[in-house]
Structures are given as C-alpha cells and as structure tokens.
Design a protein around this nucleic acid. Structure first.
Lengths: 337, 337
DNA sequence: TTGTACGCGTTATCAA
DNA sequence: TTGATAACGCGTACAA
C-alpha cells in the first residue's frame, strides 16, 4: 500500500518522472496530450506530491515559519499567530507553532527543533529569562528572525513590539486629566520583564509631565490574577490610598476589576493596559489602552517576508505598533472632592 | 556560507557520514574515541542535523501533526491546540497549525497542504459546510485522523467532542429547578451546525423531562454577538416573554449579557454554554456550563498517539468530554412570583 | 517536446 | 568497529 510517487505516475503514462514534474509545476513545455494523460494518471493513482522531498531538493529550506509563543490559549498570542498565518499563507508558507510556557528551556528546545527542520524563518516571543546570543550565527547566515512583543536579549535583531511606554503614558495621563493625583500602578512579575519596565516608565513619564510626585508605595505587583487582586487590596488599604489605578496588563486588569467589585468600590478609577473581551459589559465598563495583536503579527510577517525577498539589511529593524486609548467609563471616574 | 552536513563533519574527522550518523542516533557500535572526535567536530562546525532529510529518508513521514482550527484568536481553540501540543511534544512531534476561518475551502486547502507534507497525523475541527469523504482513503491507508469539537461529515472517524447534549440538558434543568417554566434558547447559525443541534436537543430533553411545553417562539438565533443581543431583545419583547435564557455558546452568552445589562433587566435568569474569562465579575456573575478545551485536546492527542503506536482498529472511536455546571448567580435568579 | 544524469542530506544494507 | 553503495522523492542542467 505504498503511496504513489512521480515515478509511479510516470510509469503509468509511459514517460519520465521529469515530465510529470513539468506538468505539476507548469515548468517547461509539455505536449497538451501528454499533459492530459499525466493528469489523468495522477487522479487515477491518487497521487499527491511530496512537499518534504520538494522542499529538500529546491531550497534545502522548509516552506514553513517557526513561531514560538508563551501560551496558545492566551487570546493575545493566538491573535498574533493568526495575523502571521494570514499574512504568510499567500506565499505558500505554513506555520509551525510551539508554546514555551514562558520558560527559557522550552523556548530553546523549540527553536532547536525549528532550526533542525530548516524553517524558512523564525519568529519568537522571548520568555522572561532567555538569552538569544546563540542565534546570532543563524541571523548572520541569513535566516530571517523576528522577535515579537519583546526584544531579543543579547543580540541585535528585528522586532515588533507595542508602543508600551507611550501607551502607558497616555493611559495614566488620561487619569491625571480627570484630576487624579494619587495613581496606583499594578504590574506583573518579575519587574525586570521588558513590557513591565516599559509600561512602568510610561507611568512615571506621565506623572513627571504633570508635575506629580512619584510614590513608591503606590507601586504593587503580582504574577497572576489572584496576586493582582491582593495587590489592589493592599493599595486600597494604604493610609493615603490612590484614587485611581493603572493595571499594566490584562490579568492585572482582571484582578483589579475583581478586587474593586468585591470591595464594592465604584469610586476608584481604573485604566487597564490590553483590551479584554467583555470590557464593555463590566460595571463600570473598563477603560483600556488597547493593543493590536493582529497588527503585530502582520507587521512581523511583513518584516520576515521582505527579508525572504532578499532585503538583507544587516541593521535590525524595529517597529512599534501604536496602542489606542478606549474610554468606556472606569477611567473617567473623577477623584472624590 | 553553506550549512555543514554530515559529510562535512565526517571529512573533518576522517570517517564516513554513516559513522557520524551512528554517533548521532546512538545506532550501532562506535569506538569511544571516534565518538568523541565526531562530537567535537560537530561542535566545532556548529553542525545541526537536518530533520527534513531524516524524515524523508526514514519514514517518508514528517514528524509533525497537522491541526486545522477555525480561528487561532479564539481562546477555546487556542486552549485545545495547547492541550494537543503539550501531549505530543514528549513524542518528539511538532504541531503545524492552520486556521480555516470556518470556511470549507480553506479547510480543504490546509488539509491538502498537510497531506502533501506527509504529516504523521491529522486533527481537524470541521467547518460548517465541509465534507470529508475524500479523507476516507487516507484513513484506510493508516493515517491517524481525529476530528475535534464536531464530528466528520461523510465518513466514520475518530472524534472528540464535548458532552453538548447532556451539558445543555443540565444547564436548562438547572433553570427548571429554580422554578422557571418559560426558558428562551439563543443559538448560533446556521441551525444545522452540529453543536447547535446537540445543544438544542439537550434543551428540549430538559423541557420534556420536566413536562414543560416546547414553544417555538422562545427559540432565537444569531450568528455573532450583536445578532445574539438582538435575538434576546426580541425574546424579551414577546407578549409572554421568557423568565430565563439559555445561551448556547459563548458569543450568544456575551450578547445576552450585553442585552440584559443595557435593558437593565436583573430579573431574567441566564445560563451560558461555554465559560468566559470574566464570568465571575459580571453583574450578576454568569452561571455557565463549562467545557474543558484542554481535556479535549489531550484526549484527541491520546487517540492519535495510540493509533501511531499501532493500535489500528478499523472502528471509529468516539469520546465525549463531560461539561461542568458552574453556578455563579445569573442562573439562580428565580422567576417572578 | 522529452529524457539522462546527478544531487539535496540522511539512513539501510551488507560487506569488510 | 567502520565503509561503500544505494535509496527516499523530487528538481536542475543539459543533452537529444
């Protein structure tokens, strides 16, 4: 029950494999008659070309792009992946995905697998503790590599990230504009994470631009939704508590929403970084600084495709995808008089 | 700047490619000394084995699993994919993913690509209008094929689905148990969708078990969140409106939540099928029949792996992953006296 | 318009 | 313990 090959089709028709190949790829001249007979034989035998063999012969490159994301169930990264797939499909490239669970070990192991497969390009969302020095040789050898959401560590490479700092500044400035002077910051851990650092800088930028003092007591962190909830409770229990909160990522937002709802506090303003599905039906509806994951994926795909097209600049190209402030209610709550 | 091959390593050491291969795969006897020198040369040259060539030579099968899902950004399918990847990674299999945008054309084209790549197995979430007759030959030839979330059309094949009918029955029975006698059904379109049909059957089962009449006027549909909202508004505007609603999928739930919130109706009970991220902080918190997407992915992966291990039953194996009723508030609202 | 010879990078087979 | 040779399925270069 072997699968038919070009040779089988060729034998059936009484020609050479090369002729079958010509028909398949519309390459070179083939007599209309021969062509018909080859196509008929293909159908009769149920022939399917072997992409593996083709890839190997033609470019010594797999017509696939390797993508490493932290977690597939996370709609942010899922949407990024969708944006990439959509953009590369037209080029006949398929997407190979692996999730790193935010660990450097899995990330490395996935990258190694992709390299072994000879993928045409590599796209990576770096996990917290990873280092990418070992990829410098690959990049130098011409393999397109793009980092997503966070920059590479230990090497200069293309990347596409959100306008984290600007977005956070805008979100916090929005609160300042409503009259808030004590604004809490709820971030993730570790505090060395790129996105966390950038958004924290944006927070400080906004305070400074408004001439407001920075109070370390107003900065809290948590590594998941529960911890973020607890962080918010601590902030609200301060002697001189904040009148507004800035949640620096989506689970911090969720944690803040839950903490405020449980405490029955409808007087505390809240702006979250990254949009949430049901944000508009929350009570109050959640004001966010929305990211654009599909655009991040599409931009990264374009970077990769242009490199594949021979655009071999040595310089790393870096893109910031702008965020968008979406006022819905929670961010417009004024401070108490 | 060519990438080093086995032959390069072999030349460097003064042996044959086959010896290098033996070292790489721990296959056959190699002198400890030779072994060391080969390993050293590999490191020196930065050799990386070419998986494409290996796959082609060894099994004519790609060490990858092809997965077709409707949409990557949807956390339900993202989590399913994560469950699969987690389960197959230990076997050295990687995951190739494509999204069909719920169209039969893209689904077919993705499947064709995967078959051309000679993937080791195929996992498919069928889109609404697709037909899988053409896969019968593949299945007969021994390719493991598993359908997810919805069964195949036109062929008998393994599948893993949620306990849609039982879950819906339990959700509706929950409302009946609270005293509701007029319960609206909000489903998706087209009404011929497998999941829609099953959940509708569960709805009718629960009514029948309680001796309640079925009223066609209480059944409404919509193909997205907005349409579901409109459907709910129509139900509430009936002369004899429902006192409770059953939303048969997640966007129907969201639509219902929005519609009820906008209408200020806190007296209408609501149970949704499929859980939502912020369900517990909604007002009222949303009672749901939760599915277990990670378990669906894991179960499907196990089916595939057992087939790969030679378990070649001709009979299709079908699994139902049970749902779980999560009472949070919205489903416990009693009918008006 | 078609065929021949060879190579992609690896492993299987059998002999040395 | 190692090597020589062939093979996987396909495309390239060139000849016929």
């Amino acid at each position: 029950m072997r699968r038919p090959t070009m040779a089988d089709v060729a034998r059936e028709v009484g020609v050479t494999a090369k002729t079958v190949s010509r028909v398949l790829n519309d390459d070179g001249p083939v007599a209309a008659d021969t062509r018909e007979r080859v196509l008929a034989a293909m159908r009769r035998l149920g022939y399917q070309p072997n992409l593996m063999a083709r890839n190997m012969r033609v470019g010594a490159r797999d017509a696939a792009i390797g993508l490493v994301i932290p977690e597939m169930g996370n709609p942010f990264f899922g949407t990024v992946a969708g944006g990439i797939e959509h953009a590369v499909r037209a080029r006949g490239l398929t997407l190979i995905v692996g999730s790193s669970s935010e660990t450097a070990e899995l990330e490395q192991s996935l990258i190694a697998t992709f390299l072994a497969r000879r993928v045409s390009a590599l796209m990576v969302v770096p996990s917290a503790a990873s280092d990418h020095r070992h990829l410098r040789a690959e990049r130098a050898a011409g393999l397109p590599i793009v980092f997503l959401d966070r920059p590479a560590v230990g090497m200069a490479a293309d990347h596409v990230v959100s306008g984290n700092r600007e977005g956070a500044r805008e979100g916090v400035a929005h609160l300042v504009g409503r009259g808030h002077r004590r604004i809490g910051f709820v971030g993730d851990l570790p505090a060395t994470l790129y996105t966390r650092r950038e958004r924290f800088q944006g927070y400080r930028d906004a305070l400074e631009a408004a001439g407001l003092p920075f109070d370390r007591a107003l900065v809290e962190s948590g590594h998941d939704q529960e911890a973020a909830s607890a962080a918010v409770r601590r902030l609200l229990a301060l002697p001189d508590p904040p009148t507004a909160l800035f949640a620096a990522n989506n689970f911090a937002s969720m944690g803040a929403v839950v903490a405020l709802a449980r405490a029955g506090r409808r007087d505390v303003a809240l702006v979250g970084f990254d949009d949430l599905p049901l944000a508009e039906v929350l009570d109050p509806p959640l004001t966010v600084v929305a990211q654009d994951p599909a655009a991040i994926g599409a931009a990264a795909a374009e970077l990769v495709l242009s490199r594949l097209d021979g655009h071999r600049t040595k310089a790393a190209r870096r893109m910031h995808i702008p965020t968008r402030l979406v006022p819905r209610g929670s961010g417009e709550i004024p401070p108490p008089p």
